[in-house]
Design a protein around this nucleic acid. Structure first.
Lengths: 211, 211, 211, 211
DNA sequence: AATGAATGAGAATTCATTCAT
DNA sequence: TATGAATGAATTCTCATTCAT
């Protein structure tokens, strides 16, 4: 689970920034802003504070940097499911926790997610990785809601649509804030609560209105 | 300012205009897929079926093509408001109409929106244009909901958050379908209905739970 | 036979040096001297008097230049056979003509042959082309000698070894003069005569001494 | 681990010497195949099984490796002359011995000779070294033949042309086999005999036909 | 109005070599 | 002594753009 044993860190906590890590960080930052092509090796090297050629001592080619970055997306299902433990009586808390957890995951993977979005058509392997994040989030939440439905706590209804709405809200919020820098003073916490409230009423009152 | 002279080609003048349109269409298609840099003038010219240099007879430079494309986003507020006419008793129909209308607008502006998203950091003027679309959609819907609240039809609550959720849902659906090609067999109409139902219950039952 | 009709020459005789031809000539010259790698596109462009990028407007890549050059080697069998027409009574004249003709062909293909030799291991397709020249020369001459043997004009013996010696002599002379610049005052015509004399006596007196 | 059959490694000194030899061997092999430029220090180090930088501890620079390799060509005149001892009555045996000896010398110096040929234009000092081998071979043989002419055993004639033919034959055979991999099943011994026979008849019957 | 030829700026990448350990 | 990290120079090639026709 913990990758910190790949390279024993001499200082306390990644203090000694390895060249390789600096290159990855610079590349990730630039690619998320400028796209794969816009993040030239020259710019990456300058931002990383290394010589341009040094990049190629650490990575076979530019593509390999991207591949390395993409590895950071994996394995979110377990984390997401952990946020959902709890009884129906705690539904509001559960949903709030899920909202916060999902949004945090997006922000933590900010650069890679943006890269994926930007490069979706140029690097096809990226699409699956990228879409897996919200898809998994919808799926996991939908399962939980259906569980509550099966237990009779919630009226039957399209739990998946509800989950999709919930997840979409935070996905859009994430995009608005981190891609477009819309509403820099945007209050996430308030949105978590409002969206949770709306969802709760929305699903509680659902009557099986769809085919 | 006004491009309304899209006329059938009669003589040299119309032909020239048509060439220009073909270049714009090709550029828009390619930039939406490959990004601004990935859409090389060579590829644009090939897709448009013209000589590469012809591009520069119609546009000062590549940047000018992008600028021209961006003009297509303007003025959506009026259209959106048109979808919202109606009494509270027709709320469901209103919301459905709004969902369809908004989603259709996104799809109609598909390429330009994707370009904006991809190039957000490279062409700063793009950000405002891009974000204006969902922002306006949220704002317009929020106003209507607050109108209903003021009329006593709806309980007080954060109508903006509700509007945001609604709009976000379709924004994400649009992205998933047109950027990531997720769920190509995706049923939009079903989502419109489900989301409308959830929203209606969500806002109907809102109690002023925050602030 | 005559390739001058590929491009109608406006002047008298290839006066208007096409850019493409200039690039090919420069590349051929440099590659024959410096090898494929040593003939950098920069050097080629300078020698051809064009911009470096112009090379890539005329050839897909550097390799394509080499491929174009290699096409010049083809079809030597017919030419070689033409030199061999004649009766046994004219043997000396025939051999002299053959020697001159073969050597001339080598010199005419000088650059390409040297390139082939230099790049034999780096560009495998080159080997066949290169070796085809002396091989064909040996084969064609050997056939003629065996014809004379069959007609009883020459004693049976290994005509192929004789042909090989003859051809080798001029191949080495060619190499010595054009690769190594050995003996710049070297008298080819004298060698043609001497080698012809030696060969004639050598084969005339051959007794079937080999297994 | 133990390469002690080249130079018995006793302690650091022999090991160092052995490393040096491995580098030389690798460089010679690669340069003969790929040329000076094609034999990158990286490839050399890999083939030699040493670190790339180690090369520069043993040689000032890449050029110095080549210079070291070229030293191996020297002093062939004595060896060649040794093959020619004998009376005229043994002419055939003498020539056969000479052919074998010369060809063997070529093969033994295979890599360096090929390097010289490939790099003739890039490293001018190479030309003299390279051409010295066949030139010496022709000269030594020519001297012997003229000796026999002076003794009246052979008719007067251009002994040098004869020597050149003889030597050329094996030079070409060497090239064909080791540069171009032509005729891998090529039978050298047969060629030695055939060429010797032809030469013997050729020179025995020479009439002073020129000058 | 449209095209073919040409080009300067800059991209990724390789190579021989140096430095510090 | 040997090595891992780093680098300046150079290489092939792409791209947007201009020029002459």
């Amino acid at each position: 689970m913990d990758h910190s044993d790949i390279e024993p860190s001499h200082g306390g906590r990644g203090e000694e920034q390895e060249t390789r890590e600096r290159i990855l960080a610079a590349a990730s930052q630039l690619m998320a802003k400028k796209g794969y092509k816009g993040a030239t090796t020259r710019k990456i090297s300058q931002l990383a504070g290394v010589n341009e050629v040094t990049i190629f001592r650490h990575f076979k080619n530019k593509e390999a940097i991207l591949e390395e970055l993409l590895k950071g997306i994996l394995d979110i299902r377990q984390q997401l499911e952990n946020h959902l433990h709890g009884e129906f009586s705690e539904l509001k808390e559960i949903l709030l926790r899920y909202a916060r957890g999902y949004y945090t995951m997006l922000v933590e993977r900010k650069e890679v997610l943006l890269i994926c979005m930007i490069e979706a058509d140029n690097h096809p392997e990226v699409i699956k990785l990228f879409s897996s994040v919200p898809m998994t989030a919808v799926e996991v939440l939908c399962n939980k809601l259906q569980e509550f439905q099966d237990q009779g706590h919630l009226p039957k209804g399209d739990a998946c649509a509800a989950a999709l709405m919930f997840v979409s809200t935070f996905f859009y919020a994430f995009m608005a804030k981190h891609r477009v820098n819309l509403n820099p003073e945007f209050q996430e916490e308030q949105l978590f609560e409002d969206a949770t409230n709306i969802l709760m009423h929305g699903i509680t009152g659902i009557t099986n209105s769809h085919r």
